[in-house]
């Protein structure tokens, strides 16, 4: 689905200095994969995400979406209809004065006709629990509510791949659970490819693969089990293992024998009281 080859992206800051936001990334995301991207603030996660639907172009290297080069102008439309993006700040993607129209904006642009359009909008709003707000002004919603509307907008486009940049940062625990469940369902039931950027290590556990970035490079990659058992390396990267993994590491350091790769609550319980 997504192929990233030797990707570099350099910005020039206000004083003319080069900021190497991405500094040689190789990445391969299969069709139907579920990838979490973690990394310290400024490590390049959002910059990487913006390459997936051609919002940014590589300084060097290539990004292919279903084999189509994002640098080729003629691919733009096909790429954007395949890869949807939920931004870090939902304010940046609100386009209409009414929630329902906001959600309809994407699919309408893709030429989805009525009554299909109406159905998609209704289903997307229901999926994020915002049906009651369909007629509201999006600017008047709370932070978390806006974020859900933004997700609904991408859902309604029904692309094959959804890139989410910290989608739960402003959500309450229930909202988080719901978004995670929605993402999981889209991945499992419809085979939609997911790229999920997060600072919450417990959320990254839901993915099939995890990439940890450091200063524009991939520092760790693998299954959640592989990545989150590297506790010392994670610490160095400014990251951490999920709670059960952290606790297991601390107990081990105190001389307590705990077998196996522990990253989930149940695994720690099993290890402590087999």
């Amino acid at each position: 689905m997504l192929e990233v080859q030797g990707l570099k992206h350099y910005f020039t800051d206000e004083q003319g200095r080069t900021v190497k936001a991405l500094d040689g990334i190789d990445m391969h995301v299969d069709d139907g994969d579920y990838v979490a991207v973690i990394g310290e603030s400024g490590s390049g996660k959002s910059t990487l995400a913006r390459h997936f639907n051609a919002l940014l172009q590589p300084t060097e290297g290539r990004v292919l979406v279903d084999g189509m080069d994002t640098a080729a102008e003629e691919n733009l439309w096909a790429i954007r209809s395949r890869v949807g993006m939920v931004f870090q700040n939902p304010d940046n993607q609100i386009v209409a004065a009414i929630v329902e129209e906001d959600v309809a904006f994407g699919p309408e642009n893709l030429g989805v006709p009525q009554p299909e359009l109406g159905r998609r909008v209704r289903e997307a709003l229901a999926a994020v629990g915002m049906t009651a707000y369909a007629q509201q002004g999006p600017y008047l919603l709370s932070g978390g509510q806006k974020q859900r509307v933004a997700i609904a907008g991408i859902l309604a486009m029904a692309g094959r791949c959804i890139v989410l940049d910290e989608p739960t940062a402003m959500l309450d625990p229930r909202g988080r659970r719901e978004v995670l469940a929605t993402v999981k369902k889209l991945n499992e039931e419809q085979g939609i490819t997911i790229v999920y950027i997060t600072h919450d290590m417990s959320e990254a556990l839901a993915a099939k693969h995890v990439y940890a970035l450091e200063k524009g490079k991939v520092a760790l990659a693998g299954t959640p089990e592989e990545v989150f058992s590297e506790t010392d390396e994670l610490e160095r990267l400014g990251l951490e293992a999920p709670p059960a993994g952290r606790l297991a590491a601390k107990l081990r350091k105190a001389g307590i024998k705990i077998n196996g790769n522990i990253i989930r609550d149940e695994e720690l319980a099993e290890a402590l009281w087999p």
Partner: peptide
Amino acid sequence: LEEVGLAVPAAARLAAVLRARGV
């Protein structure tokens, strides 16, 4: 708390899983 959309901290959740096991 769960009824109003909230939750307990991760450590409390982990504690509950351990408790269910008999710890």
